[in-house]
Design a binder for these strands. Structure first.
Lengths: 231, 231
DNA sequence: CAGGAAATAATTTGATCATATTCTAGGCAA
DNA sequence: TTGCCTAGAATATGATCAAATTATTTCCTG
């Protein structure tokens, strides 16, 4: 006889009912996205089972997912590492984001409610505080989530997935660049974007985010593409 | 530093040395890509272990990869199915391909060698034969491989990955549409494209592939977005 | 007495782990 | 340098546990 067993009576731990492989995936994803893993660094299954205190099977599945998304790289012979971008890769990402991000911002501007705009504004304010505090990790996380929220508001899940996937690819490199430059020297165009969105000027919003993308990604290109010409 | 010997000299072993999860992944990928799995159909691990005569772990990993690529859909409660596209999804895919494919064709035109062009021409010829024969499966496979080869020639791996991923998303729906219309009624612009590529007219090649994309995808949109409004 | 809804049992399927096997890398000796 | 050998990591299997859907039963209502 099975008892009710409690739907959500998670007295044992603070974890929700998410399967382990999903939890591990998100943790590993954040590790990549916020640059806790350096470009080129090897990623081993057993290393992650220890670091994340997980079983082998969930870790394997999480790694496969990240490889499929381009966040990790399978090196032929059983080895997995964090991708090391070259100048051409970065140019491709810039090109794709220059098309995707403005398009998504345009749609988001047409669909965002006043509450949505307030939420974005609040996120941007918190982001500025992280910059002033010199909190690099906080900056990276909030900057990503700001753009991610924008993608969601566009109500175009496939295009949003594509844009999201690009962040996973340049996340590790972005961390390196920001670490060199310091957070103070990383301006953004979020204020222009929010002003245009409040005015419901979708074209202007697209233009603002396009500049934001170019400004941010060009720093990555120069810091990386210029310094590492060979290889 | 010496390289390890023995690149690919496995002439004796009939089977390649590919790991099982890689083999299963490719088989399952083809199943999705060429419409052997219908949109909306449930995909079970145990069903695939029987169908593909494989163990449970490789199948699980293959499914995770396909989910990450958007080829399969995770339905919250442990279930996995083949995505059922709606009109908005199809519009997104059309939009993305309208940008990606011309861009890749343009780059491919600038980089293709005469041998590459001969190869593409041969593929297109075989494709025409499949159409005449009424060989739907052969048509789907060759049509995909023609475009896939084009992506490779562009030498832009990230953009190519993105375009490739879109094929996985509309593959099952494409099969349904082609099954309804018959292969005879599926014209393409490959001849125009090849002519432009041979003339090294990159702009014209981009224009041709753009028309090819629109022509093909609009049939999917009309056949699906119009006919299946509810559900 | 019949029909249906809710609860419960049963079966199917997914998630996880422990373990055995296979492969790669690097050290060591000739 | 070359070849073998060992260590360690990745791959793959099967068993076990947990969850969800389906089927069944029961009880209430008309």
């Amino acid at each position: 006889m099975n008892k009710a067993a409690g739907k959500l009576a998670d007295s044992d731990g603070a974890k929700g009912r998410l399967p382990a492989h999903e939890v591990i995936y998100r943790q590993l994803r954040d590790l990549v996205l916020y640059g806790d893993l350096a470009p080129g660094q090897a990623v081993t299954i057993q290393g992650l089972t220890e670091r994340l205190a997980a079983g082998m099977t969930p870790v394997r599945e999480a790694i496969r997912r990240l490889i499929a998304e381009g966040a990790l790289e399978f090196q032929g012979n059983r080895r997995v590492c964090v991708p090391l971008l070259n100048a051409e890769n970065i140019s491709e990402i810039i090109l794709a984001r220059q098309w995707l991000d403005p398009h998504l911002s345009l749609r988001a501007t047409q669909r965002a409610t006043p509450d949505d705009l307030d939420e974005l504004t609040a996120m941007d304010t918190t982001l500025d505080q992280s910059i002033l505090r010199g909190d690099l990790r906080g900056y990276l996380e909030l900057n990503y989530k700001f753009h991610k929220r924008l993608y969601e508001l566009a109500e175009a899940p496939i295009l949003a997935d594509m844009a999201d996937g690009l962040w996973l690819r340049f996340g590790p490199s972005l961390r390196v660049v920001c670490g060199r430059l310091g957070t103070q020297n990383l301006p953004d165009k979020h204020k222009d974007l929010l002003q245009a969105m409040r005015a419901r000027d979708a074209e202007e919003a697209a233009r603002a985010i396009r500049e934001d993308v170019i400004q941010g990604m060009e720093q990555v290109r120069q810091s990386f593409g210029g310094q590492d010409p060979l290889n």
